[in-house]
Amino acid sequence: MAITFKKDRAVFTDMAGGEEAESLLEWLQKYPKGKIDLSECTHMQPANLQVLMAAKRPLHARPKDRLLAAWIDTAIKSGK
């Protein structure tokens, strides 16, 4: 699994697949203060992205992958 769910944060590593969006959605609902850590993320299937955009949660850590970070920034920005 490319997303590790902890109590206070969800940590993305490598590529998050589409099937993980469900658990991400559940986790975000369960932990309204949970943080999102994308630093090790290289790509995410867009269902995950939709969940992040809808959750409007600030990112705890942006992806180290500069190109991905630029994309994610526009997505999070547009949701506001």
Partner: peptide, 19 residues
Amino acid sequence: WGSITARRAWPKLSELDPY
């Protein structure tokens, strides 16, 4: 350069269909 936007306003998380 690229950007992502949502076509509609996002519903509440409990009503979201991520797929």
